[in-house]
Every structure is written in structure tokens, then in C-alpha cells.
Design a binder for these strands. Structure first.
Lengths: 165, 165
DNA sequence: CACTTCTTTCACAACTTCGTGAAGCATGTA
DNA sequence: TACATGCTTCACGAAGTTGTGAAAGAAGTG
């Protein structure tokens, strides 16, 4: 496969910054977003802390904080090369699917709070009814996300076949 | 329907703050989130600027800024009572569905940037292939969102029947 | 054309967030 | 045990947001 030296470093860096920026706009903290984008551009999906610091021109401290975030939300896993003291960070497979579909917690909270709201307003009031419908909507979204993951897997299989073979 | 005075004001206020907080956590700016939550708790879905200021204990300036945001993103519309000088803000119907599904712009940007990334890395590299699959994923999500809206409409009809009649 | 009422604009202060440098800590090597 | 390497913690300063009060603006009324 293409080696690093073949790449248009400038263009890759530009991609990292642009895509990182978009991710940041969607709510991912800046540094983690940039690191994620950088990992995406590696063939192996792996990068050492030092490489990250160098690529993004950030301090070791910033790397430390950001990878902590990424590992906490399980987007990145930490590895250690045997015989080395360096940590290597690997982008976990299927980050996108998981990040997209793993909204359960948030949706659960929404459901809870909306239930309280219906209670407080009375299910027989207009406002209570609106809240109840809102609640049903989020429940619907929740259920859809589950089946969507299955559909994506199927779609992916097909796409890979058409695309590669 | 239930009048305002029947309500447990405390409980309603608590709901407003909780739900507003959740919305804020998902990226909606604080004040707009709280206002939206407050509008949800009204039977009419309408509130004057003064009522908002009073309910949420914020300055008229804050109301002004927040409703500007909400009207810009088309979650709220401004009305004027004939014979009054007060602006009334109405929550538009179907806010959730629209807010949830109207991600087209963002997904378009992602698609663009990922295409650049594939270009920069070379489609034949591992990294390029990963990016390409990522791109396909977001395209898939985009198409799903469209059909999901239809499914929601159908689901809603059914739910309303079972629920009310 | 003053007056009243409501909304908007603007400069500022409070608050948060973020990344850094420096120091500390853990772990491996001689 | 001393030393080297690399990660983490922490206090600080920079930067960006956010909401406020004050003043200006807009629009109806007498």
C-alpha cells in the first residue's frame, strides 16, 4: 500500500484540520477531534503519543488529556509496544457506527425527564399531550437506531463487494 | 384543558430546567434550550418575551438574543398580537422531527471533506479505503434519515389512534 | 409631536474552556 | 541505586462565550 512518503503531506494535514474542525462543530472537543482525524489518515490506524504531538503541533500534556477523553468514550484504545515504553493509540474499528448509534444513555435521560414533564403538566392538558408525543418521538428514534445498525451492516457488505471485487 | 394555575409550578419549572439542561448538553446554546423547554410546557406553545424573561429569570436582552437564535434555526416563529406591542413566540410544530432530520448541510460537508481526504491519501491505500468506507457510512445515514421521517409519520398516526381514540 | 411600551444593540464583566510549561511520577535499564 | 524516558498532573494565562445593564431604537397613542 501507499507509504507515508508518497503522500501529499500538506493535503493530508489540511484534511485533518478540516475534518477535525467539522467534528469539533458537532460537539467533540477540539483536540480529541483533531487526533481522531489524524488517526483516520494512517494506514494502520495507530499513532504514538509523540507522533500525535508532532503532527498536530501540540504539547504532550494536550495529547494526554485528549487521549484520555478518547479512551473514556471508547473511541480509541491504548496499547503498549512490548519492549517499549511508548503508548500507542489505536482507533477502534467501527467508531462511527458506535458513536452514531450509542445514544442510549442520552435517550434514556430524555425519556425520563419527559415522563416527569407529562406528570407535572397532567397528561390531559395540551402541553402534557405535546410532551407525551415528544416522548414517543424519541422512543421511536431510539428503536430506529437499533435496526439502522443492522441495515448498515447489510449495506456495507454489499458495498464492499461492489466496490472491491 | 388544565389551566396554568392548576399546575405544580415548582415541578414544571424543574422540568424546564432539567430538559433545558439536557438540550444544552446536546449542543443547543443554554438560553435557547431553556426557552424551548419553557415553550413546551405551555398549552398554546406560545409565550411573550416578558413571560419568558419572568419564567426563566433572565434579562430582556438575553431573551432577545436567544429568540433570535431560535428563529434563525427555525425552531420558533415570531408573532405579534394585533393591538398589542408585544412579540409572541410560538414553537413551530414538528420541531423535533425537523431538528433531528435536517442534518443535510452537515452531512454534505462531511461528504465533501471525506472525498478530499480519499483523494489526498489515495483510494488504494489502507487509510484511503477507510476514509472511503467512512464516507459511505455517512451517505447511508443521510439516506436513512429521509426514510425515517416517513416511518415516523406513519408510526405517529398509529400511536395517536391507539392513544387517544 | 411628546409619551409610553417594548425590543434591540453594545460595551463590559463573569465564567468557562483550553492548552501550555513545569514539576512529579512510573517504569524500565545499566 | 542512579539514570533515562515517557506519561500525567496542576496552576496559570489566553481566548472565547454568555448574560447583564444602560442606552438607543422602533412603533403605537393621546
Amino acid at each position: 500500500m501507499t507509504s507515508t512518503t508518497d503522500r501529499d503531506t500538506q493535503a493530508v494535514s489540511q484534511f485533518v484540520e478540516r475534518f477535525g474542525g467539522i467534528l469539533a462543530d458537532t460537539g467533540v472537543p477540539r483536540m480529541p477531534a483533531r487526533i481522531l482525524a489524524a488517526l483516520l489518515t494512517t494506514d494502520s490506524g495507530r499513532l504514538t503519543a509523540a507522533e500525535i504531538a508532532d503532527l498536530l503541533q501540540i504539547s504532550p500534556a494536550a495529547v494526554s488529556g485528549a487521549v484520555r477523553y478518547l479512551t473514556t468514550v471508547q473511541i480509541v484504545s491504548r496499547e503498549r509496544e512490548p519492549g517499549s515504553r511508548r503508548d500507542v493509540y489505536r482507533m477502534r474499528d467501527n467508531v462511527w457506527y458506535e458513536a452514531t448509534f450509542r445514544k442510549d444513555q442520552m435517550l434514556g435521560m430524555i425519556d425520563e425527564v419527559l415522563a416527569e414533564g407529562v406528570e407535572a403538566l397532567g397528561a390531559d392538558s395540551d402541553a402534557g399531550a405535546r410532551l407525551d408525543e415528544t416522548r414517543e418521538f424519541f422512543r421511536f428514534v431510539h428503536s430506529e437506531l437499533g435496526s439502522m445498525l443492522d441495515r448498515w451492516r447489510a449495506h456495507r457488505e454489499k458495498w464492499l463487494e461492489e466496490h472491491q471485487g
